[in-house]
């Protein structure tokens, strides 16, 4: 592997100062499950790894039924799915954290890293998008927040500017009668990268017959994970029906711009967008229905 220096940063300002100083030759190390492999295989050149796991803010995992979730950028998957409050409030996010890698990967990898790695196929990003998550970013000029759907800009590229780092992710508290769901298609049952991923969040009326609003997001069908805006809008204020769901699935297929690679063909991916969007929507609806009245 290439040579690099390792720094264990203790505060956000220390990490930000270092990032600002070293520029793009420095990378943040959290779970390391992508970064270490990329450095080893020469896919990313770097001179500095800045370990942020000793910084308190990036390890925060706190949920409040009014204000929602604060998820530190370095919190690993296993802590997320071990948290009952998170499991109860954000099942769609939990769906993603339990399928990333295997158990050993989940011991290190986290949602923040998944976001910063900015893979088009990232499993955690569609759930963040459908859950209206915002990204809390610290930089030389202080903190700013951006919507999760704007965080990734291209494969491996993010909206982070020079000297900036992701500190945490905020997710609003779920509305009444709302649920989220994420699933992906992979040829095996674990340990694969999504051929296509689809997330959905849905808000139903009191009677659980009518969709008040929906959000749909997709992975692995474009250079970044996508918010399917038109497909989501199509479902607003509609009776639950196969027709409505099929229309949304069709609209989601329309925005997919997949490529063919070793993980799947473009035709296969476009086809799967329809299948998975339907399954994600039905999954989220079923979850609302399964909730005690």
């Amino acid at each position: 592997m290439q040579e690099f220096e390792y720094i264990n940063a203790k505060t956000v300002s220390e990490a930000v100062t270092l990032l600002d100083e070293k520029g793009d030759k420095a990378r943040i190390l959290a779970g390391g499950t992508d970064l270490i492999v990329q450095a080893r295989e020469g896919r990313r050149t770097l001179d500095w790894m800045i370990d942020i796991k000793s910084i308190p803010e990036v390890n925060e995992l706190s949920y409040d039924s009014n204000t929602g979730l604060t998820l530190g950028a370095a919190v690993p998957c296993y802590q997320i799915y071990a948290d009952d409050a998170v499991c109860n409030a954000y099942p769609g996010l939990v769906d993603a954290t339990i399928i990333i890698g295997g158990t050993a990967i989940q011991g290190r990898a986290g949602v923040g890293g998944n976001l910063c790695n900015a893979s088009p196929a990232a499993d955690c990003i569609p759930p963040l998008i459908v859950l209206n998550a915002t990204c809390v970013i610290a930089g030389p000029n202080g903190e700013r927040e951006i919507p999760s759907e704007d965080f990734c800009t291209a494969p491996g590229q993010t909206a982070l500017e020079k000297g900036e780092m992701l500190v945490s992710i905020k997710i609003p508290a779920p509305q009444q009668n709302s649920r989220s769901y994420y699933l992906r298609f992979i040829p095996r049952n674990e340990m694969d990268i999504a051929v296509v991923g689809a997330g959905a969040a849905i808000v139903l009326d009191e009677a659980k017959q009518r969709i008040i609003s929906a959000r749909i997001a997709l992975a692995a069908v474009a250079p970044t994970p996508l918010y399917a805006e038109e497909a989501s809008a199509l479902l607003a204020d509609r009776e639950i029906s196969d027709t409505a769901i099929d229309e949304a699935a069709q609209a989601a297929q329309n925005i997919a711009r997949p490529i063919s690679d070793m993980r799947g063909t473009a035709e296969q991916r476009t086809h799967l967008v329809g299948v998975l969007t339907r399954r994600a929507l039905n999954g989220a609806i079923q979850r609302v229905k399964d909730d005690a009245a």
């Binding site: 295997g102 040829p187 095996r188 049952n189 674990e190």
Partner: peptide, 10 residues
Amino acid sequence: LDYRMPTCLD
């Protein structure tokens, strides 16, 4: 990762 040999879950 991408050669996809069976895991025990398959």
